[in-house]
Design a protein around this nucleic acid. Sequence first.
DNA 1: GGCCATCCTTAATACGTATTGATTCCTGAT
DNA 2: ATCAGGAATCAATACGTATTAAGGATGGCC
Lengths: 357, 357
Amino acid sequence: MAAQRRRPTQVDIARRVGVSQGTVSLVISGGAASDQVAEKTRRAVLEAAAELGYTVNAAARRLKGGRTRMLGLYTFEPVFPVDQRDFYFPFLLGVEEATARYGYDLLLFSSATAGGTRRIYAGGVNRLKVADGCVLLGRHLHRDDLAELVHEDFPFVFIGRREVPGEELSYVAADYVGATRDMVRTLADRGHRHLAYLKLSGDQEPTRDRESGFRLGLGDVGIAGDGCVVHPIDDHGVITGDLLRSWLSAGVTALLVEPSEDDSTIAAVERAAAEAGVRIPEDCSVVLLGDPPLGEGARDWTRFSLPREEMGREAVRLLLDLLDNDDGEPRQLNVACTPIPGVSIAEPPAPPKGPPR
Amino acid sequence: MAAQRRRPTQVDIARRVGVSQGTVSLVISGGAASDQVAEKTRRAVLEAAAELGYTVNAAARRLKGGRTRMLGLYTFEPVFPVDQRDFYFPFLLGVEEATARYGYDLLLFSSATAGGTRRIYAGGVNRLKVADGCVLLGRHLHRDDLAELVHEDFPFVFIGRREVPGEELSYVAADYVGATRDMVRTLADRGHRHLAYLKLSGDQEPTRDRESGFRLGLGDVGIAGDGCVVHPIDDHGVITGDLLRSWLSAGVTALLVEPSEDDSTIAAVERAAAEAGVRIPEDCSVVLLGDPPLGEGARDWTRFSLPREEMGREAVRLLLDLLDNDDGEPRQLNVACTPIPGVSIAEPPAPPKGPPR
DNA sequence: GGCCATCCTTAATACGTATTGATTCCTGAT
DNA sequence: ATCAGGAATCAATACGTATTAAGGATGGCC
C-alpha cells in the first residue's frame, strides 16, 4: 500500500523501454497512427505498460482534446426529493439512457444550491461549462440565469418550452397547445358548452401554452368565451366548494385542471367537490391537462400523458446534434401527448335552472 | 450567435483586464492565496470572468493536481432500468443528497458500457479518475477491474462489503452477518430446530456474510448443522415443489431465503410452496435475509431492511474523509439492519412423522 | 534623498498527453 | 560510393491551470 505514490506515466514507460514519450503515446492511443510503429517496439511498450500498471490520465487526454465527453443535467428544482421524484424521474431515465448510449457520462449539478435556491452562476462562475453541453429541466427557473446562459452561447437543451425575449433557444417540449385543444374538442363532443379552466398562477410557458390551446379549442367548436371561466390557482391549489358551486350554477359543466408537479391542485379539486357535494363526473366533468404522479387508488382521470422518458432521450439527441453540427440554429421539437380516456367525464347534467342560453 | 467557439480561458480574462494569467488564477481559485490580490484587481477579474462566461477547465485543474469537486458514481449494473431501480434508487438518493450537501457535483459514469458489460477500464483508460473520488455500487462486479482499481490507489468507497485478496478497501456495508444471526435466533426462539438456507449462487461477499451469520446463529442457539440445509439457487431462483417437500419431510420447519435485486427468488419460493401445497407460515416459516423491492399486495414477509439511503450518504462522507485526510488507511463502516417482524413465521407445525430426533 | 518594508503582480514552471515536422537509419538502385 | 526514398523514431510544442520565487511599485521613515 505504501508503494509508489505517483502513478506511472508514459514517460516512465518510455524510459524503461528506451524510446521517447511520443512513441509510447503513438502505441497507447492505438488506432490510425499506431501502425507506423515497428511491431517489436509496439510489443515492448505494451508489455512495459502492463508491468507498470499504466493507465491513461484522462484529465491530460481531455485537456489536449477539448471535449470532455460529459453532458450536464441541471435541474431548477431538486429532483431527488421523494415528493417530486415521480414526476421528474422519467425524464432522468431518458436522459441517462441516451447519454449512455451515445457514450457520454452524465454530470448532475447537485452542488448548485446557493442558500436553498439553485443558481447556475455560483460565485460569478458558470459551472455548467465543465460539460460539453447541458440539459436543463424544471419549472421554477431563474430568468436571469437563463438569459445569461443564452448570451454565453453555451450549448444546452431545455426540457419544456422556454422563451427568452429576443433569443431562440433549443428545447424539446410537450405539445400542450394541441393536447389541450383536443381536450376541449372532446368535451364539446360530449355536449359541454361552458367550461372552466383552472390554470396555475405564475406566468410560465407551459401554462401559457395550455391557455392558448384552451382558447383555440373554444374557437374550433364555436364556443363563446364569455360562458367560460379562466381561474388562476397557486401552486398549492386553493379552491373552495363555494367557488365551484357558483360556477356550476352559472352553467359550467366541465373543469379543465392544470396539474402541478405534485398532485396538490387535483387534491384541491377533489376537496372542493366533496365540500360542495358535487359528484364527478355525474354533476361535473373534470379533465387534467397533464399526467401528474397520483397516489394509490386515485381516480382514473381523463387526461393526457407526456412521453417523459422519450423527451429525455430526445433532449440528449438534440444536444449532441447541436454539439456536432455547430450552426447557430436552435433545435426545437414538440412531441405529441397521448390522450388517456379515463372515467372523469360524462354528458353534462340536465340544467337545474335555465342557465344563460 | 456564431461567435467564438473556443471557451474563454484565464489567459483571455488576463488579456482583457490587463493582468497576468497567474493573477487571474489567484482570484479564481479563491480561498487562501486570494487575499493578497488587490480588491480592485479582484473585482475586475471576476467581472471579466462573468462577462466572458468563463468556467474553469476541470481537466486542466485536475491535471495540475487540483480538485474537480466532482464525485463519481459507478455502478456495475445499470441502475436506471426500471426493474432494478427500486432496489438501487435509495442508494442513489443518499449519494446525491450527501454530494449536494458537501458542495460537490455528481458524475454518473453511464458511458462505461462496452458491449453490454460495464467495465471501468474501457479502452485501457480508467475514466473514473476525472472525478476526485468515486462511489462504487453493484453486485456483479468485475474482479479484475476492482483489483486494478485498488492497485492504482485511486480513492473510492464501495457500497457493500467487497474483498480483494491482499488489499484492504473502503466500504460501507450492511451488517448481514449480525442480521442473519439474529434471524436464526428469532426462529430458534419460536422453536425451530431444522432450518434450510437458500443462498444465491455466485460466491459474492453479501452471500458469504449471510452464510457466516447463519452458521454463527446455529452455534449461538446450539443447533447442529447436520439437521440443516444450505442450498444454492441461481439468480433467477429455481426451486421445485418436490425439493421443498423433501426438506419438510426431513424435518425442516423454516426457510431462510436470500433475495436477489429483483424478487425472483421469493417468487420461486412462493411457486414451490403453492406447487407442493405448503402453506406459509402454517406449514413452513419463511424469512427473507434482506428487503427486496416487492410488488403491490405482496406478502408481509418477516425480514430485515437495509438503511439504503443512509448507506449512500455515509459512503460519500467516508469518501470525502478519504480525500481530505490521505493516510493510506481504508475506511470501513458496517451499519445495522432493522428487523421487520412481518407475518411469515409461526411456531413449527406438529411433526407429521417422527423426524430425526 | 536614500533605504527598507509592504503589498501587489509577474514570469516561469510543472502536470501528462497528442500531434507533427524533423531526423535518423536502412535498403536498394544507380 | 552515392543517393533516393521509405520506415521508424524523436524533439518540440500546445492544451489550461496552480504555484512559487522573484520583480516592481509605493509609501514611510530617518
